[in-house]
């Protein structure tokens, strides 16, 4: 698999994604600088976490105007996988590649922790090596991960099986006490209509090695390489 990690000014999980893809998943990886326009053909595009353009104005609000985003949109239109993690998810929302918006965490403070997610669908290039209901342990680290959308959009996401992950207990139960940020319907990650764009608040790249406490994140890379 050939992957590219987009680097915006202020991205800070770009090296982590590069490491996870190359050293953990065994993919061929390159960086894609935000000022570049021409993306060499690749199988996977990663929008990493961080604080693109300082996240001034609103998270992801400035990054959507980066020259590189045209190539991201093109790549997505062509049906190839794009994964936006944390700030990457926020950018995908701002760019209109995924529906909805991010609010500040309900606690109004930044939260870094290990949480659990329940896989809601195996029908996507990101989850085909997982089964529905499978619980993953992944870290989160964000101040604005409180996903929000209109009731209509939510219904569509539910009806079209586009909720990829929900926050849950270790044994897959849902409840406010397992939802770290107050997101609607406990959403942790969603898919676009074409099912080739995934936005995800938790960090799979931080959970690929046992020394880091969890290897569950590998499942997503394995799905993509399958």
């Amino acid at each position: 698999m050939k992957a590219a990690v987009v680097v915006f000014p202020g991205s800070n999980c770009d090296e982590d994604c590069f490491h996870a893809l190359r050293d953990v998943a065994g993919a061929e990886v390159r960086y894609f600088w935000h000022k570049e326009k021409n993306l060499p053909k690749c199988d996977l595009l990663v929008l990493p976490g961080g604080f693109s353009y300082g996240d001034y104005l609103r998270t992801g609000a400035i990054a959507r105007f980066a020259p590189a985003m045209e190539a991201v949109a093109r790549h997505a239109r062509e049906g190839r996988p794009v994964i936006g993690i944390c700030n990457g998810f926020q950018i995908l929302l701002e760019a209109g590649l995924l529906p909805g918006a991010m609010l500040r965490n309900q606690s109004l403070s930044f939260i870094c922790d290990h949480v659990f997610l329940r896989t809601e669908t195996a029908k996507s290039p990101f989850t085909n090596r997982l089964e529905k209901g499978r619980v993953l342990g992944l870290p989160i680290a964000h101040g604005e991960g409180n996903y929000f959308c209109s009731p209509d959009t939510l219904r569509r996401l539910q009806d079209e099986d586009r909720i990829a992950f929900r926050y849950s207990s270790t044994d897959g139960r849902l409840g406010d006490e397992f939802n770290p940020n107050g997101s609607v319907d406990h959403i942790a990650g969603i898919l676009n209509e074409g099912r080739n764009v995934l936005g995800l608040m938790p960090h799979p790249e931080r959970a690929g090695e046992s020394v880091l406490g969890s290897e569950d994140g590998k499942k997503i890379w394995e799905s993509l390489m399958a």
Binding site: D16, A20, S109, I111, C112, P139, L212
Partner: peptide, 10 residues
């Protein structure tokens, strides 16, 4: 420490 990103850089 829950307010600090303590895991970035993996």
């Amino acid at each position: 420490w829950r307010q600090y990103d303590h895991m970035v850089r993996t």
